[in-house]
Design a protein around this nucleic acid. Structure first.
Lengths: 106, 106
DNA sequence: TGTATATATGAATTGTTGTTCATGTATTAA
DNA sequence: TTAATACATGAACAACAATTCATATATACA
C-alpha cells in the first residue's frame, strides 16, 4: 500500500505551476465554493446565499476559478450555473481533507 | 474506478484548516523545498545551494513548514537536517502534479 | 577563549491577494 | 423601452506574506 518515495526530475516551470495550482485551494472562500460545487452545479446567487457571502465576492472568486478552468459556467436565463470542470478537484480536496482529519485524531 | 461525488457536511472550521493546509503548497519556494525533501532529508545549506536561494529565505520557509509539522529538523553537529514529517505530503504533491501533467497534454 | 561555520530570527520593505463599493452588462418581462 | 433581476468587473483599500538585510545563537575546533 505504501508507495516508494522515488523522485522524478521536475522542471522549475512545472513546480511553479504546481504551486500556482495549489493556491486556488489555499483560500477559505474558494475552498468553500469548491466544497459546495462538489455536490453539483449551483448559481452565483445560490452560492452567495448558501455561504453567506456578498455576490461580488463570489463573482470575483469564481472568475479566478473560471480563468484557471476549475469551474465552468452555463447560462440559463438570467442565472449562471457554475460546475466543477475538472475530475481531479475532488480527489485533491479529499486528499487534503484526509490529512486534516488524520491530524485531528492525534 | 470513478468515485461517487458524494458530499459530507464539513464544518467551516475544517474548511478553513483545509485552505490553510493547501497554502503551504501554494508557494514556489516551499513547493521546491518539499519536492527536494521528497527524495530524502537535507541540510539547510544544501537546500539553499541546490535551489539557488539565500540561506535566510530557506530558513524562513522551513520555519513555516516546521511550525505546521510538515518538516522535522534533526541536528548533527552544526548542521540541521530537515525531513518531511508527514506521510500525506508526497500523496498530495503527486495528486497535484498529476493534474498539472494531465493539463499539459491537452 | 577566539574564530569560523551553520542556522535562526527580527525589522523593514515590497509584492500580492482578497474584499468593498460603485457601476456596468445581459436577460427577462411588463 | 423601461424596470427589475442576475452577474461581472474596475479601482481603491486593507491585510497578508515573502524577501532582504543585519544580527543573534549554537556548535565545532584551533
Amino acid at each position: 500500500m505504501k508507495k516508494e518515495a522515488t523522485m522524478q526530475n521536475i522542471s522549475l516551470d512545472t513546480l511553479f505551476e504546481l504551486s500556482e495550482f495549489f493556491k486556488f485551494f489555499g483560500d477559505t472562500t474558494r475552498i468553500r465554493v469548491i466544497h459546495l460545487l462538489l455536490s453539483g452545479e449551483m448559481s452565483v446567487s445560490a452560492i452567495a446565499e448558501k455561504l453567506n457571502l456578498e455576490q461580488s465576492v463570489v463573482s470575483h472568486q469564481l472568475r479566478i476559478l473560471r480563468t484557471a478552468n476549475l469551474v465552468k459556467p452555463t447560462r440559463d436565463g438570467r442565472k449562471i450555473y457554475y460546475a466543477l470542470d475538472d475530475e481531479h478537484i475532488g480527489e485533491i480536496f479529499n486528499t487534503g481533507l484526509a490529512h486534516i482529519m488524520h491530524k485531528k485524531k492525534g
